[in-house]
Computed example of a mutant assay.
Amino acid sequence: MQQPVYKRVVLKVSGESLSGLNGYGIDATTILSIAEQIKEVVALGVEVAIVCGGGNIWRGIAGSQKGIDRATADYMGMLATVMNSLALQDALEQMDVPSRVQTSIAMQQIAEPYIRRRAIRHLEKGRVVIFAAGTGNPFFSTDTTAALRAAEIEAEVILMAKNKVDGVYSADPFKDATAVKYEQLTYMDVLNKNLGVMDSTASSLCMDNNIPLLVFAITEKGNIKRAILGEKIGTIVKGSID
């Protein structure tokens, strides 16, 4: 049996990755493919927590730019992450993978409230835990949620699954043909070069808590398992370069 290099991980799934080629909404085929990849990892005995973005449905910062109050727009974005989380939970349970959705905003009819000790207990019992509704506060991104929850549950790594890129580049590879892909970076590199891997709050939180970040493409089937097994894919971001 292949041995994973991580025991407990936080998987950050962007909202865009759930929309497939549509660019908006939730694509059933895509979400089932992601659930299948997660099932492979759970079968290896890895404890998996997930944070879903909501950009396929609503972006708070984009809404605020159109005149909606920023806090209100962010709360709307949190609701979008709940929709994505419930869809992912449904896909996982169709594959007989037990899962729980925990929200930072009370929604007792559809999900559990976020309770750290309960989340850890679910993970220890082999259940996938999906953290929804961000941190429960406006002005914080789901990247920051991933960093915060990873620190709280003592995850060994954050796996940042991207929809369009297979790692971190020096510039946008779709706009700049000279863009170079990095294999390793430090969090200080990310902050100083303004690489846009995650927002500065999330980067600082990961750096302060010594949580490595692996950025890779989720569109290539089997990549989550490859990341768990320690294969060289994507870009690793950590406190210092080997």
Rank of each mutant, 00 (worst) to 15 (best):
E183L: 03
E183T: 00
Q184L: 02
Q184W: 10
L185W: 03
L185M: 08
T186I: 08
T186Y: 02
Y187A: 08
Y187C: 09
M188K: 11
M188T: 02
V190I: 07
L191A: 06
L191V: 10
N192Q: 09
N192L: 04
K193H: 00
K193Q: 03
N194H: 10
L195H: 04
G196N: 07
V197I: 08
V197E: 06
M198W: 03
S200K: 10
T201E: 14
A202S: 08
A202N: 09
S203P: 01
S203N: 02
S204M: 04
S204K: 00
S204N: 05
C206M: 11
C206P: 09
C206K: 05
M207R: 09
M207G: 04
D208Y: 06
I211L: 04
P212H: 10
L213F: 06
L214V: 12
V215E: 00
F216L: 10
F216C: 05
F216P: 04
T219F: 11
T219R: 10
T219W: 09
T219H: 09
E220I: 13
E220L: 14
K221V: 12
G222H: 07
G222N: 09
G222D: 09
N223F: 12
N223E: 10
K225A: 06
K225W: 10
R226L: 11
R226K: 13
A227H: 02
A227Y: 07
I228P: 01
I228L: 13
G230N: 14
E231I: 07
E231Q: 13
I233E: 15
I233R: 15
I233W: 12
G234W: 02
G234V: 14
G234K: 14
G234F: 03
T235H: 13
I236W: 08
I236Q: 11
V237K: 01
